[in-house]
Amino acid sequence: MKIAGSAQLPFSPERTYDLMQDPVLLAKAIPGCEALQKTGDDEYSLKMKMVLASLSGAFDGKVRLTEPDRPNSFRMVVEGSGKIGFMKGDGLLRLTPKDGGTEVAYEGDAQIGGTMAAVGNRMIDMTARMLIKRFFEKLSAEPAA
């Protein structure tokens, strides 16, 4: 499933870029993230718990940040699997200065499998949108420098 959109952050592209590479901040911003640990140059292990309406599930997975091109773009891959299924999001994030801040445009694919996929396409799309929105809201709340 294609996922595309954009978010406006109140920082310079450089600051925005650095925030999104900071494992401590990522751990705070990724919705439901319970632990994020560096396991390689551009790779982190991830434990998250997703709660959405009555649905809840724990996921083990990883986050990878690749194709670095500070402050213009990078690729983020988040994947996780748990008892209720697995998910993978793979997107290219492009940063451009806009209105004194930075617009982050993202474009990529979201996949879902296992029992979780039985909730329906509509729910998956809405959930992905909401998780992305929450991620950027958390980041926006960081200090400007």
């Binding site: 499933m1 499998g113 039985a118 909730v119 396409n121 509509r122 729910m123």
Partner: peptide, 14 residues
């Protein structure tokens, strides 16, 4: 089916 083999219309919601 999506390219990974997931049945995207695998319940009556879709």
């Amino acid at each position: 089916y999506d390219d990974n083999g997931q049945l995207m219309t695998g319940e009556f919601m879709d």
